[in-house]
């Protein structure tokens, strides 16, 4: 029943984002319209894939860092991606994929630094240090980014910032193909870690005695969730709150067993982002809001509500 509802929700979100837009496309011509086929459809699919990836990454990271209020972007990746993109522009690197590649590289660099910080004594990965290190690296990268922007002062850089704060306007079938080929690998890694993640919720020592290979699981989960997030930020910028709110709502309905939770977070995240992107395109048409603004406008009140609920319970 709940799966049917979720599946239906995902379908409606996808359908709405294909049907709705500033240009009115009659229902009968939907399948033949260039606007639909070249603009809306790849954008809807990309939004779905990115939102789903963020939902899964968020759910897995919350279990890993043992903090139910963690967001995938807390781990410094957005800062790194922003720095990468701004550097690319400041250094006049051009080409259609320059920004995504630079952002991805920046996110990977941040990921590597945070991971290295989290490895205490070179052996055990400490999730608390991952969280703190992520915040620190993210702030550091943001500071450098701001320095570059304030020194360069070019109009282009403003666009980078806009791009960085969430936009699926660059969506194309190429981008969809790239994500569709890339994302399944980290997604499968996380799904395979579903049971060890259940055990990890008890703490590392009990998890070990219940058969989890704790160190390997922590590394795998951190890397896979971060690689998902890095790809998401590269194709669509920083889209906050999907990775935070969606796992939460999924937990309320599906409980805390990751074998059900992760697929639910994928469908839920996909549906939410496809829906948010439709709003972003349509509410102030013909102009467009960054989708990160829409997810924040939806997500922050939900988050505040959850926070209250969590602290009272």
């Amino acid at each position: 029943m709940k799966w049917t509802v979720l599946g239906l929700l995902a379908f409606v979100a996808l359908l709405a984002s294909v049907m709705l837009g500033p240009a009115a496309v009659p229902l009968a011509q939907l399948a033949h319209s260039d606007i639909v086929w070249n603009l809306r459809a790849p954008r809807a699919v990309l939004a779905f894939l990115v939102g789903g990836s963020l939902g899964v990454a968020g759910a897995a990271l919350q279990a890993l860092v043992r903090n139910p209020l963690a967001d995938p972007f807390l781990l410094g990746l957005s800062g790194g991606a922003g720095l990468g993109a701004v550097l690319a522009i400041a250094l006049h690197v051009s080409g259609p994929w320059a920004l995504p590649i630079a952002a991805f590289a920046g996110a990977l660099a941040a990921l590597g630094l945070v991971y290295r910080l989290g490895l205490i004594g070179g052996a055990a990965l400490d999730p608390r240090i991952l969280l703190l290190g992520g915040v620190a690296i993210g702030a550091f990268a943001a500071a450098i980014t701001t320095a570059i922007v304030s020194l360069a002062n070019a109009a282009e850089l403003r666009n980078t910032f806009l791009w960085l704060w969430g936009g699926l306007s660059g969506a194309s079938w190429d981008a969809v193909l790239l994500v569709a080929l890339y994302a399944p690998i980290p997604l499968a890694v996380l799904l395979a870690a579903a049971r060890p993640l259940d055990l990890l919720a008890l703490g590392e020592e009990p998890a070990r005695y219940l058969g989890a290979d704790v160190e390997a699981v922590k590394r795998r989960v951190y890397l896979a969730a971060s690689l998902l997030t890095a790809a998401a930020v590269a194709v669509s910028g920083v889209i906050g709150f999907v990775g935070l709110v969606v796992p939460h709502i999924a937990r309320l309905t599906w409980g805390h067993r990751h074998r059900a939770l992760l697929p639910a977070a994928f469908l839920g995240g996909g549906a939410l982002l496809a829906f948010a992107d439709t709003l972003a395109r349509t509410v102030v048409a013909p102009r467009e809001l960054p989708v990160g603004v829409v997810t924040a406008l939806i997500g922050v009140p939900v988050f505040a509500f959850l926070l209250r609920r969590w602290t009272i319970a």
Binding site: A201, L202, Y209, H256
Partner: peptide
Amino acid sequence: WPRQDLAKLVGVVPQREDNLFPQRVRE
């Protein structure tokens, strides 16, 4: 020992643990 194999042979009631998420007894 691979931890999974060992867990079939040895059950442990550790001194401390905390449930990050609410859980039912059967779960």
